[in-house]
Design a protein around this nucleic acid. Structure first.
Lengths: 114, 114
DNA sequence: GAAATAGTTAGCCCTTGCGCTAAGTGTTTT
DNA sequence: AAAACACTTAGCGCAAGGGCTAACTATTTC
């Protein structure tokens, strides 16, 4: 659970940058080379590489170098963690609205008794 | 779309902190007072208030002061934006795997011809 | 009305994040 | 072998984030 939370920290931080979200979207269409990716963003290659590293160290993408070219692939499983967190919040919320409903119901029953 | 992206920036940043995620979880069970919330976290009140403000300015919670007490309420609609983004990624991914499948199918057809 | 309560504001420290340039490494190309 | 290519490393500058203390304001409470 502690690890789960630390993972979410990293994931959300990684997703908080528009460049990184764009990379994820781009990689959704298929593997791409660092150079090809970088060309689409208005920043230097070293700056761009930091984003790639951030995505990789948070498990959102995988990369491999062959020759002098590094290729990036989307690693989808990781986004499922975010999904899980959202689902959990929904669950909590719904449990609460259920309680609220039964509260309302209880009140109505009390009124019916009188 | 530009606004959508800026909103996502703020949302993901807001969600990237464990304290703030805990507050969201807590508020899922119902509205709570700043003081009551703060008591559960190992930090001073001014520090905690910053988190509350961050959540509020990103629309994840709403707060109102009555007398000297400020009460926080979860504002669920906002999380839907995150859901939307995730759904979009899934959509892109699935469109791609569809293309991959038809590619495989095409290859098979070519082989069948021979 | 004095004291306790619940936030709020201001400002400081330190670390981290994101951009940059300059220079270096290993791999093709010519 | 030289030149071009595709990163990579190192280090710098600046703004923002998350924590703190100290001091202040506006309600209650006694």
């Amino acid at each position: 659970m502690a690890q789960y939370s630390a993972d979410l920290d990293g994931l959300f931080v990684a997703l908080a940058d528009p460049t990184r979200r764009d990379v994820i979207r781009r990689l959704g269409r298929g593997p791409t080379t660092v150079g090809d990716l970088a060309r689409e963003f208005p920043m230097t290659l070293p700056s761009f590489m930091k984003h790639v590293r951030t995505l990789e160290s948070n498990g959102l993408i995988r990369t491999a170098k062959s020759g002098r070219v590094r290729t990036c692939v989307l690693s989808r499983e990781r986004l499922a963690l975010v999904d899980d967190w959202l689902a959990e919040q929904r669950r909590i919320w719904e449990a609460r609205t259920d309680r609220l409903e039964s509260f309302v119901t209880d009140q109505r029953e009390k009124n019916d008794e009188s």
